[in-house]
Design a protein around this nucleic acid. Structure first.
Lengths: 337, 337
DNA sequence: CTGTTAGCGCCTTCAC
DNA sequence: GTGAAGGCGCTAACAG
């Protein structure tokens, strides 16, 4: 690491002929600095191209003005969308954003990785963290933390989540209204509350419509496209395949469409498909995907707001912040004739 | 910020009945620690749920084992793809990733924002940084830095870039071979080398084919979809509109397709469209987009490798790392009859 | 093998 | 209004 030592506050002080404390004062916009000194220091700072050392600063001041985000897998479009919402929020609210990713490969160590990073970030380079679709149930930190699309179970952090169950029910009513009786379901990441609630919506709607639930029509996916493909294939290979497939998210739905295509089926003529999330791009695919809109961007935004409130010591009304979903009907479904 | 003070290395030391240096040793896996002490310390660490303070650590050790990425606008799919490549690299090479984004709104301050963050990150929370499509020409840092898709002009940092000119030429030869003579061009972000090289390829191919270059057929875009839409609209409103439009990237091409559709034109029957980048999703749109593949993921990977070499003090062979492009012919073009 | 001693760069009382 | 001194949590010599 043979870099030239970067220039410090000391160098600036010397060059400006003042003490480090004075430089620090102008750096932090303290009021009790003489106009003239302020100008002079400001000038030398610019001249020398000085920027303060983030590490030293936060070590001392215990405040960084940046919020952390930990997202295990950036490969996930959901995470990306949420990130864009967070990005929008910090911009408006005057914070910086620091994202940690490391893409642990082994599923078994996901939770440990998350925990390590959350506590590492907190109190050092960020004042609080947002964690996207966490694998861990609990986090060893005394700092503000909010989850987006949380883990199921008895978590101890506030969370932002959509009305997944209701969204799924909307889909099922629509499909059933179209005359479908054999409806396949590709479930999402097993331990996420969202996935469980969507499955629950599927089940309850079936029951409500007095349609028998066939376990073989439910496949365990994980929100990823490849898995969606595999699950759909299994479903379509069934002796008595479904006439419609409800995939727990758009990625899985796209995998489903690919599988159907590879099996020589036309959509929606031979098979109806519904997704969940309303990812950008789902309009562009052929046929345009019927799906459930989940306000991912807004979820990121809301989480940021909540986190900032927490950081400022305010307490929140509810542990869970619920965001609405909405059925978006496009061209991937068709009535049974 | 009324958090409980987080537990420090001192607390651990006291609890384990050793000195802080010993704790530090086991933390950093130094070899000269007695088996028994190691165990004991490790145990109390786990028990107390201690994690080291990142800021303090890097302040002292001048080494963070993480690489920084600054990307101004996460809204850019190119940046996202690159990020995925970087993510893959750090995973394999054993580094962590820290992304800075802040989405400055005013174009005029882009460069300043980038510069501020680059120098703030470097030497404090990261050992080097990758900057994606920089707006700044120069950076005030003595730390390793590499750019992806750099700014044009006399930059002083190493860069990873694709064969943009050749890629554009490939498109033009294809289009001309199809019989097109009036070919519109929607240019990319003005100051990026990539944009300039693509434009250059467009020009040179025209010249080589002895086709006159009409300035009104060239529009200044900026790689964004909305701008692509607007430019395409202008092109199509021309008294003598082009029969084909070559957009400098896929986003612009999608904007173009939307504009054509809104103008009641069918693609490829009434208008041929070509993009650049081969973004995921361009297969799914209708018609599937003919485009140029740019190995974005690999570019991110390569930049990471280069950066790590730099961090380890190795010198590189070339300032520019060139990545190949490849024409991908799909369904958005048609021969003139 | 382990403890003691210096700081890393910065901010913050406290004097002047 | 400004400087001097102490310490944030940690690592890296240096002794023992």
């Amino acid at each position: 690491m043979g870099q030239k030592p970067s220039i410090t506050i000391q160098d600036v002080a010397k060059a400006a002929g003042v003490s480090v404390s004075t430089v620090s004062r102008v750096l932090n916009d303290k009021d009790d600095v003489a106009e003239a000194t302020y100008e002079k220091v400001q000038h030398t700072i610019a001249e020398m191209g000085y920027t303060s050392n983030l590490a030293a600063k936060s070590l001392r001041s215990h405040r960084t003005n940046t919020i952390g985000v930990v997202a295990l897998d950036l490969n996930d479009p959901f995470a990306i969308q949420v990130l864009l919402g967070i990005n929008r929020a910090i911009r408006e609210l005057g914070y910086d954003l620091i994202l940690y990713a490391s893409g642990e490969r082994k599923k078994s160590t996901y939770a440990a990785w998350e925990q390590r990073h959350v506590s590492q970030i907190n109190g050092s380079v960020a004042d609080g963290v947002i964690i996207v679709t966490p694998a861990a149930v609990t986090f060893p930190t005394t700092f503000p933390l909010v989850a987006i699309d949380p883990h199921s179970g008895d978590t101890d952090y506030p969370a932002v989540i959509a009305t997944n169950r209701e969204g799924a029910q909307g889909v099922m009513e629509y499909l059933i209204g179209l005359g479908h009786q054999r409806i396949g379901f590709i479930a999402g990441r097993e331990h996420l509350k969202s996935a469980q609630q969507r499955l629950r919506g599927y089940r309850e709607s079936l029951q409500k419509a007095k349609i028998a639930l066939y376990p073989e029509l439910i496949r365990q996916g994980d929100y990823r496209r490849e898995t969606g493909y595999r699950c759909a294939k299994e479903l379509l290979d069934l002796p008595n395949p479904p006439t419609a497939i409800f995939a727990a998210n758009d990625e899985s739905a796209i995998g489903t469409i690919e599988a159907a295509r590879d099996a020589g089926l036309r959509i929606p003529d031979d098979l109806s498909v519904v997704g969940f999330d309303n990812m950008p791009g789902t309009t562009d695919i052929t046929p345009a995907l019927t799906t459930v809109e989940q306000p991912m961007n807004e979820m990121g935004y809301a989480a940021t707001e909540i986190l900032i409130n927490l950081m400022e010591g305010k307490s929140l009304n509810d542990r869970a912040h619920i965001m609405p979903t909405k059925l978006i009907i496009r061209d991937s479904c068709r009535a049974i004739t």
